[in-house]
Amino acid sequence: MDLVTPVFWVFAGWSVVSAVLCITRRNPISSALWLVSTMFALAGIYVLLDAQFIAAVQVIVYAGAIMVLFLFVIMLLNVGDAPREWRRWPVGLLGVGLAAVLGAQLMMLGGYGRQRLADEFSTQPAPVNPALVFPEGMASAAAVAERGVVGAVAEPLFTAYLIPFEITSVLLLTAVIGAVVLAKKKL
């Protein structure tokens, strides 16, 4: 029996419910904790999609480090429940309308299966064999089977993407200096 699909829908429902609660809670701390819950659900989905290393990094870096930074700042500023947290009707209604239009457009993505992706990427006329367009078949599963969970990500990261990787370190240094300069009262 295929367990992956029902488990996927459990995690999908969990993440959507948590995201809705995250944007509707008045208290910023409950918002942050529901966002952590969304990130845990997404980590579960990453495991189902053959991205085990990304799932671990998601829990450690996103749910662990970044969200702790958010909670720290919320508690530092001591922001409590807002009396009127929502924007009033002209702006609020406009926001809901814009988000609905964007969501309707993005939902077209739901129709993209492997066959349709193969049709759009190939230069051949419409019904093409997906196995010819994506020769390795399940690329990430094959890479994990060949090089292991960490090696599958590390091999392209340190060969094809080496220059972006080095530039990222400069970006992090800039962010550290910038954060200190901005947050310090007097240098």
């Binding site: 969304t38 947290e85 929502w86 609020g92 969501g103």
Partner: peptide, 20 residues
Amino acid sequence: LALSAVLFTLGVLGVLVRRN
């Protein structure tokens, strides 16, 4: 991809309507 679209839309909605 559909779940990704739903979550992205919820994020946009939050950015547009929240005040904090």
